[in-house]
């Protein structure tokens, strides 16, 4: 190591955001914007079928004069428009179900880790039970009983995926709960709710954020799977998952039906994971000074 290092310390303290983070943030912003603006920017009605113009490759000019930029699907619908509208469904299902499972999972995990005793036993055994039931089976059963629908889908996904958060929150809470600053808070007279949400939660948020970002991608894929089984989003409305599920049958003849939503999905999930990883580091006040 050289003694003479470039003098870096004296640079003005600008919020230094790496290029990769700017890039993934831009991708996420674009996808969110597109989802919000779908009705205004979609070149065609995503539901209008044209059976004679089915499975046309990208760039085909349709009989009505519309250019199918990304081609058409098996019913001759404009793939680009379907992807734009599908972003709404995929994003909102993923965001909402991640929120539901985080809320449920983290609260239960912190309670188990804090109160110990029978609370711990009951919650953690419930987690074991939940994890031993195939999630898809549980989802199928629930939907079979409740019937399909957007909100039900969110609840089904959210309420089958919480055990992962619980495990992480539980382990982290066990670690944090014995630290002197938690004891000090107890001595200060703080109750369990205050200790858990004011002191424990901020200090275990990092690992939970990682789980949440990983789960976000899984949720989109899960939704796709359920939609494929006919238990999620009901046709004719589309999500990225359902578009891909249908396109799977035509993959030799029409690669674009799977490729484009798949690419969007890949970009979104990757971006969210990268951003989440970075956020975890940034949210730690100890690293803020750098």
């Amino acid at each position: 190591m050289s003694v003479l290092q470039p003098v870096r310390r004296f640079r003005p303290r600008l919020p230094r955001v790496p290029l990769s983070i700017m890039l993934v943030s831009a991708i996420i912003l674009v996808i969110v914007a597109v989802a919000l603006l779908a009705p205004w920017i979609a070149p065609a009605d995503p539901l209008r079928q044209d059976l004679l113009g089915r499975l046309k490759p990208p760039g085909t000019v349709g009989r009505t004069g519309v250019t199918y930029l990304l081609g058409t699907d098996d019913l001759g619908r404009d793939l680009l428009s379907r992807i734009l509208y599908g972003a709404r469904v995929s994003l909102s299902v993923a965001v909402l179900s991640v929120l539901v499972s985080t809320l449920v999972g983290v609260t239960l995990g912190m309670m188990a880790g804090w109160f110990r005793g029978w609370t711990d036993t009951v919650i953690m055994r419930l987690v074991d039970i939940m994890l031993s039931i195939p999630a898809i089976l549980l989802a199928v059963l629930t939907v079979a009983v409740l019937g399909p629908g957007f909100l039900k889908l969110v609840l089904v996904l959210g309420l089958t995926r919480w055990p992962r958060y619980t495990r992480v929150a539980y382990a982290q809470t066990l670690q944090v709960a014995n630290l002197p600053y938690i004891k000090a808070s107890e001595l200060a007279g703080a109750g369990a709710a205050r200790i858990l949400f004011r002191h424990v939660l901020p200090n275990i948020a990092g690992p939970i954020l990682i789980v949440a970002t990983a789960e976000f991608g899984l949720m989109i894929l899960f939704e796709a799977g359920l939609s494929f089984l006919g238990l999620g989003i009901q046709p004719p409305s589309a999500s990225w998952g359902s578009i891909m599920s249908v396109g799977r049958q035509y993959v030799e003849r029409a690669w674009w039906i799977v490729a484009f939503p798949g690419a969007c999905l890949f970009l979104l999930v990757l971006s969210v994971n990268v951003l989440g990883d970075w956020l975890r580091d940034r949210l730690d006040p100890r690293s803020r000074i750098r």
Partner: peptide, 29 residues
């Protein structure tokens, strides 16, 4: 009865400001 702990690095919540930490016993009660 209050307590002062051995390791000051672990006796303060890293995510709470000094003000919030000192205020806690007063505001909780």
């Amino acid at each position: 009865v209050q307590m002062i702990f051995q390791d000051p690095a672990l006796s303060l919540d890293p995510r709470a400001t000094i003000g919030a930490t000192v205020a806690e016993p007063l505001s909780v009660r």
